[in-house]
C-alpha cells in the first residue's frame, strides 16, 4: 500500500482539497459513523497541545475507533533518550494510524518515511500543521459557498504565523486576492510574497487596520500579535493596540464576511465582536472535528463513497 500519510498541506492537489472538503461535509451532516470500529488510532503528543489533541481524539471516537497514546513527554521514554524512530516503530505495532505532534521540525516527515502505518502530522514545530489548514479551508468554503475569487485579509503576526503561511499556499489554486495587514516587524516574509507573484496571486500590504481597509473583505483571518516576537519593545507598545478588531469596525463590511482565528485568542478580537453574526471563530474550531474525521479516514484508505454509504 502506498504511504497515505498527511505531513504537509502542499501534498494536496486542488482536486484533493475539494474532495476532502466534501468528505468533511459528510461528517458534519452526521458525525457519528462507526467506520473505524475495529481500528486503533494513536495520538502521540511529544509536545502538549490540548486543543488539537481533543479535536483529533473526538474525531477518532466519533468514528468508532479506540484511541491510545500519550500527551506528556515526561512520562514516555523520549526523555530517557529513546529515539523518535524507536517510539514510532513500537507504536506502529499497536496502532493503525499515528497522529503526532512534535516540537522538532521535520519529525512527521521522518516518521512517515519509517512507519509501516500512516502518519498524520498534528504540528511539527514551526513547520506544518495541515489539519489546521484543512479546517480553515472548510470554514471558508462553508461560509462563502466557494473557495474561488475571495478577498482574504490576514491580520496581525504574518511573519511567524504558520497558519497564515499554510493557508496562503493552499489557497493558490483558487484565485484569491490577499491583503496583508501587519506592523513592519511582523510583515509577511518576502518568500511568501515571491510565492504569490510566482503563482499569479494578487496581494496588497497595509500597515493601517481600520474599517475602510477591511471593507471589501470576504474573510478576515486574525492572528495573535505576541510581545515576545518583537526585538524592539517600544515598537510593540506602539502597535499592540492597533491590530485589534472591534465591533464598530465591521459596519462597512459585507453581510457575508466572516472572521476567523486559529485560537486561542488573547486580545486581538474584542469581546464585543463575539455577538456579531460575522464572528465565526468558535464554529471554525468545531469544523476542525469534521476536517480531522476526513483526514483520519483518508489516510486509512477510506473513500468518500464509503463514507457516504455508511450512515
Amino acid at each position: 500500500m502506498a504511504n497515505r500519510s498527511l505531513v504537509a498541506i502542499e501534498e494536496y492537489s486542488k482536486e484533493k482539497i475539494l474532495y476532502m472538503l466534501e468528505m468533511a461535509k459528510e461528517f458534519e451532516k452526521c458525525p457519528n459513523r462507526k467506520i473505524l470500529d475495529s481500528k486503533i488510532v494513536a495520538t502521540l503528543f511529544f509536545e502538549p497541545s490540548t486543543r488539537t489533541r481533543l479535536s483529533f481524539e473526538t474525531a477518532a471516537n466519533r468514528l468508532g475507533a479506540k484511541v491510545i497514546g500519550f500527551t506528556d513527554p515526561k512520562v514516555t521514554s523520549s526523555t530517557k533518550g529513546e529515539s523518535l524512530k524507536d517510539t514510532i516503530m513500537m507504536v506502529s505495532n499497536y496502532a493503525d494510524v499515528i497522529v503526532m505532534r512534535h516540537y522538532l521540525e521535520g519529525a512527521a516527515r521522518y516518521a512517515s518515511e519509517i512507519a509501516p502505518v500512516p502518519i498524520v502530522n498534528a504540528g511539527d514545530g514551526a513547520n506544518q500543521h495541515p489539519s489546521q489548514t484543512m479546517l480553515d479551508l472548510y470554514s471558508i468554503y462553508k461560509t462563502q459557498g466557494t473557495l474561488e475569487n475571495l478577498n482574504i485579509y490576514m491580520v496581525g503576526d504574518l511573519k511567524y504565523g504558520r497558519t497564515v503561511h499554510s493557508l496562503l499556499m493552499a489557497m493558490r489554486h483558487f484565485n484569491p486576492t490577499f491583503h496583508f495587514v501587519a506592523p513592519d516587524e511582523l510583515k509577511m516574509p518576502d518568500e511568501y510574497k515571491l510565492y504569490c507573484r510566482k503563482n499569479g496571486i494578487r496581494y496588497e500590504e497595509h500597515r493601517d487596520f481600520n474599517e475602510d481597509v477591511i471593507a471589501d473583505a470576504d474573510i478576515i483571518y486574525m492572528t495573535r500579535v505576541q510581545r515576545e516576537r518583537f526585538t524592539d519593545l517600544m515598537e510593540y507598545e506602539k502597535v499592540k493596540n492597533v491590530y485589534i478588531l472591534h465591533e464598530q469596525m465591521l459596519h462597512k463590511t459585507k453581510e457575508t464576511m466572516k472572521i476567523l482565528h486559529p485560537l486561542p485568542r488573547v486580545n486581538e478580537i474584542a469581546y464585543d465582536v463575539d455577538n456579531s453574526p460575522k464572528a465565526y471563530y468558535f464554529q471554525q474550531a468545531k469544523n476542525g472535528l469534521y476536517a480531522r474525521q476526513a483526514i483520519i479516514c483518508d489516510v486509512l484508505g477510506i473513500t468518500l463513497d464509503e463514507v457516504r454509504n455508511n450512515k
Binding site: 529515539s83 524512530k85 512534535h102 516540537y103 522538532l104 521540525e105 521535520g106 521522518y110
Partner: peptide, 12 residues
C-alpha cells in the same frame, strides 16, 4: 542549519 530540525536530533 536549523537546530530544531529533526535531523539534528535523531540518528538519521
Amino acid at each position: 542549519n536549523n537546530p530544531k530540525c529533526i535531523t539534528n536530533n535523531e540518528p538519521m
